[in-house]
């Protein structure tokens, strides 16, 4: 813990996300986050791994306040999430991709991408559509603009969901187990989109079970277990010379 705090202080100057001593207790009494401190620098890709129920998704969801916190502080892009303010303004700058895609089932792919930019950013239909088509091209789904989500495969839906988040031109992208609900043969196409995003310098926080992705793309990897942030390290050190016994045990189970 001592080392982590020092690293945290050193990095905090250029951090776009700073979480310090975050506590989360669900109404049912589950202590989901215990004194979690972490930071993410602009342009960095941070991957969070850990067993299910470890609080990693909860932590990710506190970053755009889909979950509230009970103690501690989170500052995103200079705005503190614990002081009253306009949470919508903040969320405009943070894209989120969900495990279950959550595409708007009643809208076409194109309209899924256009809705928020038009409603929130005030774009004209034409501008929004141009932006949407450009993004669909980027995720390789130009031919699906007129389809409904139910007509797409899981991998295609998730790529649309990524494009939908990008259509808001966010500063940060959060990924909540983006490949966990996918058939194995579709995982690659989604990871490829995420990799290209990372190479283009997007700030990303990714909760995932894809250790290959973590090793290849992450700048830093965090390991969480039972609500605690246990290890924070570079991918190389994280996987090759794991410092903690709990991490060693976890890695031996998943690798």
């Amino acid at each position: 813990m001592q080392m982590q705090d020092e690293a945290f202080v050193a990095a905090s100057k250029e951090s776009i996300i700073e979480a310090s001593h975050v506590e989360k207790i669900y109404p049912g009494g589950v202590h989901a986050l215990k004194n979690v401190s972490a930071c993410v620098k602009t342009g960095e890709v941070v991957v969070i791994v850990g067993p299910s129920g470890s609080g990693k998704s909860t932590f990710l969801r506190t970053l755009n306040q889909l979950e509230t916190i009970n103690d501690g502080e989170i500052v995103v892009d200079g705005i503190s999430l614990t002081t009253p303010g306009d949470v919508n303004k903040l969320r405009e700058e943070i894209g989120m991709v969900f495990q279950s895609f959550n595409l708007f089932a009643h809208l076409t792919v194109l309209d899924n991408l256009c809705l928020a930019p038009m409603k929130v950013r005030g774009l004209k239909r034409k501008e929004a559509e141009d932006r949407a088509k450009e993004l669909l091209l980027r995720v390789g789904l130009s031919d699906k603009a007129g389809s409904y989500p139910s007509q797409l495969s899981g991998g295609q839906q998730q790529r649309v969901a990524i494009a939908r988040a990008l259509a808001m031109r966010p500063k940060i992208m959060l990924f909540d187990e983006p490949t966990s609900a996918l058939d194995p043969e579709m995982v690659g196409e989604v990871l490829d989109v995420m990799k290209s995003l990372a190479h283009h310098g997007m700030t990303m926080v990714v909760v995932t079970h894809e250790m290959g992705f973590a090793r290849e793309v992450a700048d830093r990897v965090l390991f969480m277990e039972s609500g605690e942030l246990v290890v924070e390290d570079t991918p190389q050190a994280f996987f090759d010379t794991p410092k903690s016994e709990r991490l060693q045990k976890f890695l031996s189970q998943v690798l």
Partner: peptide, 9 residues
């Protein structure tokens, strides 16, 4: 959640 995460009210 998807709507809210896009900044919609």
């Amino acid at each position: 959640e998807a709507g809210r995460s896009l900044g919609m009210t």
